[in-house]
Amino acid sequence: MPAEPPIDSPRRLFEAYELLAAGSTRPIAGGTDVMVAITGELGPIPERMLDLSRLEELRGISLEQGALLLGARATYTEIRRSTVCREHLPALVEAAATIGAAQIQNRGTIGGNLANASPAGDTLPVLLAADAVILVGGQRGEREIPVADFFLDYRKTALAPDELILQVQVPLPRGRSLRFRKVGTRRAQAISKVVMALAWQDLGSAGWKDVRVALGSVAATPIRARATEAVLEGAGPTPEVADRAAETLAGELQPIDDVRSTAEYRRAVSARILHRLLRDAGGW
């Protein structure tokens, strides 16, 4: 039984900012999350909606000055088809390919995945591992939020009510490797039980630096496993290091039992897929 809240469809960013500043309105891009909520069964129906579909500024994927720039309205399908994404951030392409069905991928956007801030959002660990920066804007101006500071609590973000996500900026340091792994209930259209991204730069004999271990579905928000990162920083992907990293990760995570999986499974499988990624990296 869909209700129909009033909806504004601005063509210019400043108009969108004005509408956001004027009061409670819910931005809608692909609508893959918002439209589920609009029945009212799963919480309050938005009083007013802000349609982003005419804001051309939020579109597009490009490569500029060594960074990948993704407009907030870049859809999963666009990411999958993007040559620059495939070349420079294939892990994000992999993540986008695991989200929902083709219809969802055609509608859903990276900005929406961030704003919805589900702990199970599949692109989010990739963005965390890649040190992405989120450009947001409003009448008070634009600001950049490192993605590591973006997720505050369960479905709570650093985005202010009068701000809009404009762009995701992913730095592309030379020599960085980034791997993605998702474990879901079935092979397509599954919300993840555990999702992980691992990034590092290999300095050869000096070991790995800037190691990032990011996970989804194991906490109230997408997280970085800092203690595990510390184990890996400056080390190489040897069997001993991998064992220690896996054990550290299992100790570090505090997942829960829910409708999709168990805490026990999530903890063990997080450790094991990290172990496997390290093993693959080490080639042993």
Binding site: A188, Q189, A190, V259
Partner: peptide
């Protein structure tokens, strides 16, 4: 189906999963 106090916890298509064509 997971139950809690006699209530199905996964009573939606997002949570009650059946095989897809890929499965």
């Amino acid at each position: 189906i997971k139950l809690q106090e006699g209530r199905y916890l996964n009573d939606r298509l997002a949570t009650y999963l059946i095989p897809t064509a890929l499965d």
